[in-house]
Amino acid sequence: MSDGLKIVVLIKQVPDTSSAAGVNPDGTVDRARAKKMMNPFDKFALQKALESRRDHGGEIVAISMGPPPAIEVLNEALEYGADKGYLLSDRRLAASDTLATAYALFKTIEWIGGVDLVFTGLQTTDGDTAQTGPQIAERMGLAQVTYTETMKITGRTIRASRIIDGGLQHVELQMPALITVANSASKLEYKTFANVYKFKELARDPKALEGRVRAIDLDVIGANAARVGLVGSPTVVGKTWKLGEKGGTCKIFKGDAPAHEAQLLAGALAADGQGMEELLK
C-alpha cells in the first residue's frame, strides 16, 4: 500500500494502585479517588504500533473507552507519537462487561474503517481478563495473534512469535489482523522531544487539538445502545468480598534464638499433624 498502514491501538485508563491515592487501608480501591494511568500493558501495544508505522508508514489512531477524563491517556498516546485519538464516552456504556465493551470498540473501529492492524495490550491491570481483544476480532471476523512478543511486516504479510505454555509459536498471516501484545515484548521507549513538542503546539490551539483528539459517543459510531452497558452485558458482579479475612490464625515464633524457633516450628508442625513425614507421602 502506497499510503502506508492504518493502525488502531486500543488504550484504557486504569487506577494506579501503586499510588496511595484512593487505595483504602484494606487494599480495596476507590475508583473515583484513585490516581489514573495508562494501562501498563497498552504501552507494549503502542510500541508495536509505533514500530509498524516507523517501518511501513501510515497512521496510528488510538482509541479509548471511558469517562471524559480518560482523554488524558489519548493525549499521552499522542505525546508518544500516535496521530489521532478517539475517546468513546457515553453514559450508556457504564458497567459494560467484556462482550459489551468488545461490541462498542468493534463499532468504533468499523466506523473508522479501512483498518489494517488493531493492536491491544495483553490485558488490563484492572480487569485482567485478556478477553476484549479476541472478542473484537470475533465480531470483526478477523484473524488474531495473542501473546505476541515479536513481529515483522513484509508487504501485507505478518510474521509473529507468540508465547504459548512452555514455549513459542511462530506464525504467519495476512493483514488485516488483531494483535495482542505480551508484556515481554519490547518496551515503549520514551516520548521523543519532537513528539512532545508537536503535541504541545497542538494543545495551544483547542481547535487543532479537537481535530486530533476527539470524544465520540454511541450515536456517532452508530452503535446499538441495547448491546452495551448493563443491558448489553451477559454477566454481572453478583457479590464481592475482601480476600481472605482470616487473620490471626498464624502461629508465630519469635525470639532471639533462631535455632530454638526453628525447633518450635517443626515441633508445632508435628503436633498439629503437619509433620514433614506426613506431607511427603
Binding site: 515464633f253 524457633e261 514433614m276
Partner: peptide, 26 residues
C-alpha cells in the same frame, strides 16, 4: 496474616536451621 506458621527472624539464619529440623523429621 494468612500464613499458618511464621518465624519472625532473619531468613538466612533460620533457613539452614529449618533444614536441619526437617531433615530430622524426614
Amino acid at each position: 496474616q494468612f500464613a499458618h506458621y511464621g518465624i519472625i527472624s532473619d531468613l538466612f539464619e533460620v533457613a539452614p536451621l529449618l533444614k536441619k529440623e526437617f531433615q530430622k523429621s524426614l
